[in-house]
């Protein structure tokens, strides 16, 4: 664990004298995600279905939280797709990217690198032209490592 992560963890309020269960996942973190999704997509997270048609690639354990490669791919014809959002649940600011697709893209594919403060779900949400939403989520662990 690096210094930054310690600072971040303490900023999230891990200061209790005993180890209270649940303290690593403050409840406001998920509501921040819900707020962001509501604001940017105009729907609530609970209305979005997970779908195998969205393929999200990310490491299970990040080699560095500062630089996590993520790619999103789908076989849904690009003509039917409007846009893509990427979120990281437990980042102080969960929103990562908005991507608009046009038929000129040829295929639904987007790859980037993101910064993660701690272990979290990464979400890719596709909006189709018919107004529906599809999502893929994957947990990426940010760890100190060291085993053998």
């Amino acid at each position: 664990m690096d210094r930054r992560r310690f600072l971040l963890l303490s900023a999230l309020g891990i200061a209790g004298l005993t180890f209270v269960p649940g303290i690593f996942r403050p409840s406001f973190a998920s509501s921040k995600l819900e707020e962001d999704i509501q604001k940017r997509l105009g729907v609530s997270l609970s209305q979005i279905k997970e779908s195998a048609d969205v393929k999200l690639q990310a490491p299970t354990i990040a080699e560095s939280g500062a630089n996590v490669p993520v790619s999103v791919e789908s076989d849904i014809p690009v003509e039917k797709v409007d846009s893509l959002w990427i979120f990281v649940d437990n980042n102080p600011s969960p929103w990562i990217a908005d991507v608009k697709f046009t038929p000129m893209n040829g295929k639904v594919y987007f790859a980037t690198r993101i910064k993660m403060g701690q272990t979290s779900n990464v979400r890719a949400i596709l909006k189709l032209k018919d107004g529906s939403f599809l999502m893929a989520a994957k947990e990426v662990k940010v760890t100190v490592g060291g085993c053998g």
């Binding site: 664990m1 310690f6 180890f19 354990i61 662990k141 760890t143 053998g148």
Partner: peptide, 29 residues
Amino acid sequence: GEQLKAVWEDVADNVFNPDPFYQQGGDMS
């Protein structure tokens, strides 16, 4: 103590995560 606990928890998850894709295949520190 708080930092130590966080590190030990981190290692414990690398050993005991129920999904082997999130384990590192070593034993506990």
